[in-house]
Computed example of a mutant assay.
Amino acid sequence: MRINRILNNNVVVVKEGDEEIIVMGSGIAFGKKKNDVIVVDKVEKVFVMKDKSEYEKFTQIIDQLPEIHIVIAEEIISWAEKKLKTKLHEHIHVALTDHISFAIERHQQGFQLHNKLLNEIRVLYAKEYEIGLWAINHIKNRLSISLPEDEAGHIALHIHTAKMESSTMTQAVNTTTLLNELIEIIEKKLEVKLDQDSISYQRLLTHLNFALRRMEEGQPFQDVDEEMHQLVQEKHRSSYQIAEQLKEYLASCYQYELPVSELVYLTLHIQRINRNKLKEVEE
């Protein structure tokens, strides 16, 4: 491989036909110039950015951001691909690198952005969240900078949306935000702060997430017979009323039509939480 363009000491571009390939490695371009042969032993990572706009953004980032931030971001991306056993969308090289550099800059300036969706992200995207935790620990080891756990959530969302078949970042954030709003309604009505580590919370959140996905994609819901519907409605009246309020909220604020059958399942999830609350009061 011969160098076509040097981006910095650690990143070069080579050409194979009409395709430009990004090659990374510590000091791979040190003392080199265009058309020089790359030392294979120095190559640590090779990838192609087929989207021209993404390639241009990546080269701009390389010009503007500290080299160590770029190296760390690529190490995190490599770790994520290894753990998830999949290639991430090429946009991750731009989006995550820019985010991590900005997060480090904010931290150094004494600013911290609270991640209101952290609890939901931790449950819905567990594997990506583990990668996020690994990432902030990796940054600490590399730079002696302790980023808050909130950043693990931000990184997890970037990783999640970069999976080839995943939704866009906007879709992921919108869904997670809506789930957070629904949880807040339940907490307010039950007058309780949900334990995010409890099985009841995780089951509720997962169920709500799948319900939203079905509505977005127009998938059918599992039906329940009228007898079961009536039994749940009468036996768990207060929990059923909360489920109805969630249905009304989704309809009025998001134009989502939750089927009546789904109220049964939501009621049972809410009732489980309510029952746990009553046990704690009795104790």
Rank of each mutant, 00 (worst) to 15 (best):
M1C: 11
L7R: 15
V11W: 15
V13I: 15
E16M: 11
G17S: 09
I21C: 12
V23K: 12
M24C: 11
M24K: 14
S26D: 14
I28E: 10
A29I: 10
K33L: 09
K33D: 12
K34C: 03
K34E: 14
V37D: 09
K50P: 02
K52P: 00
Y55S: 10
K57I: 01
T59G: 05
I61S: 06
I61D: 04
L65P: 00
P66Q: 07
E67Y: 01
E67H: 04
E74Y: 10
I76P: 00
K83N: 05
L84A: 00
L84R: 02
L84W: 07
K85Q: 04
K85E: 05
K87V: 01
K87P: 01
H89A: 10
V94Q: 10
T97S: 02
S101H: 07
S101Q: 02
S101T: 06
F102N: 09
F102A: 13
A103H: 05
A103T: 09
I104M: 02
R106H: 02
H107V: 00
L117Y: 11
L118Y: 06
I121R: 07
V123T: 15
K127Y: 04
K127W: 05
K127C: 03
G132H: 03
A135C: 03
I136N: 01
H138W: 08
G153R: 08
A156Y: 00
H158S: 04
H160C: 12
T161I: 05
S166I: 10
V173Y: 13
T176S: 08
T176F: 03
N180Q: 14
E181C: 05
L182K: 01
E187N: 06
K188P: 07
V192K: 05
S200R: 07
R203I: 06
T206P: 00
H207V: 09
R213E: 14
R214Q: 11
R214E: 07
M215F: 09
P220V: 09
P220Q: 05
P220K: 06
F221H: 08
Q222V: 11
D225C: 12
Q230L: 06
E234W: 08
K235H: 14
R237F: 08
S239T: 09
Y240F: 15
Q241H: 10
E244W: 12
Q245P: 08
L246K: 01
Y249P: 04
Y249F: 13
A251K: 09
S252Q: 09
L258S: 01
L268F: 06
L268Y: 13
I270S: 05
Q271R: 04
I273V: 08
N276R: 12
L278V: 11
V281P: 14
V281M: 14
